[in-house]
Amino acid sequence: MSSTIKQRRLAKSLLQLSLSDDGRIERDSVKEILESLLVSRPSGLVTVLRLFLHQIRRHEYTYHARVEYGGKEGEKLSEKILEKLNQNSSKALDLTVIDNPKLIAGCKIRLGDDVYENSISDRLNKLQKTFF
């Protein structure tokens, strides 16, 4: 479903209204916004809601780090990783830790659009690229 610039801008401003002072999504604000939207019913409401949901999800990624690890020691590193990430971020971060055997060993952290990786599978991929 295509959207107009006006709808995208509205969804963005709704996101700004949903943020708390520390830049995180505030559930109560989102609830209020949704209620007012249902009352005012702007044109293309479904599209605006879809875009708003998309914006919320994308924003959540900016403070919700996803850590994938491979090997036995991975889980123990999670606290250390969270501590390091919090040092470098202006927002308080959340962390989801997932075991990913495809990495073989090491870890991969995704925060927003940034991916930090130091794993055996990544090194093997790099090695493969040098040959082909």
């Binding site: 994308r58 995704r110 659009d113 940034d114 930090y116 090194r123 040098t130």
Partner: peptide, 27 residues
């Protein structure tokens, strides 16, 4: 082979047509 951690910026394909892709992310 470098053993340093790599940092990349990623995105996902949202539309793909006639040799052109629209990508979300890649901030």
């Amino acid at each position: 082979l470098s053993t340093d951690a790599t940092r990349t910026n990623v995105g996902t394909i949202t539309t793909l047509a006639d040799g052109v892709a629209k990508v979300e992310g890649l901030s």
